[in-house]
Amino acid sequence: METTNKVEVKNRLLFMDSSPLGHVSDSTVKIMYTVCITLLPALAVSVWMFGWEAVRVIVLTSVFTIAIEAIISKMVSYKVNFMDGSALLTGILLAMNIPANSPWWMILVGALVAVILGKHVFGGLGQNIFNPALVARVFLIISFPVEMTSWPKPLVYDSTTGATPLGILKTEGLGALAGTNLTDLAIGQMGGSLGEISAIALLLGAIWLFIKKYITWEIPVMFFATVAVFAGIFHLIDPQTYASPLFHLLTGGVFLGALYMATDMVTSPMTFKGKLIFGFGCGFFTMLIRLFGSYPEGVSFAILLMNAMVPLLDSYFPDQKFGMVKNG
């Protein structure tokens, strides 16, 4: 609002402001770029697995999201800093959620959906209810099912495509996965989107985020635990039909989802209990969709579902205020 017109003050005057006058060195920009940097190991693995195609996707998504955000910043009434790292982060996360052989037009559609439908229709940074990259991924899965399910094979570097381990599990059953090595899965040697393949690389980046306290343990731990327990129960009941908990943890987007998507600050709860329930819900819906749904993978749907619950979680499970304890 243009209510003030500050004048040039000739004599230098003393600075007046409300306390506190100190501030930590953290800033939104720093947080965003730090998260981007911690995604580098996972990106490196994807380049190792899928070659130059992966680089192409990463560059295209980043350029598209930043360019679209820059155009949006000229069109909206609120202030948008398109270089604050949030657009870049959305771009990188989008890249991690699509196959390495995605055509450029699909990437463009994804970027448009992520930035406009995912973020700016709600009022820009901090206002969005859903994780922009996931909105784009789900939009693409529904709109372009063929392109979004023909995953390039790892370490082949040609145009041959195949299904993800979860896809095979869904269509052909557990028997078809007999030769799968869990170590390969942990490293990321499997078909899949750019970012979801390597659990180890994702964990490596996330450890830095834990150290910097940009993410907290509640959501990832609850997410992993729920997936493991859910899968474990069914595996115990019928090991012939249902895959082991470890298989469910390492395949698909559980690591990417739990460490980077569900912990997105804007779209996750802020209170302790809210975070626990949020993590539980993500894991629960993921497994529900994986085992009983028609899609092989459910992480993105689960997180989007829980994103919608965040305002409720925040207001129904607030942290306890000081002075509410009865003193014995």
Binding site: H23, S27, T28, G126, Y214, V266, M270, T271, D319
Partner: peptide
């Protein structure tokens, strides 16, 4: 050098304020 005239940016709901608040306020 102590003067910081940094602009207010949008809240990114990081929850740092809630964690730092000794009164447990949202």
């Amino acid at each position: 050098s102590m003067i910081s005239k940094r602009e207010e940016n949008p809240c990114i709901r990081c929850g740092a304020c809630i964690k730092a608040c000794p009164m447990g306020l949202d």
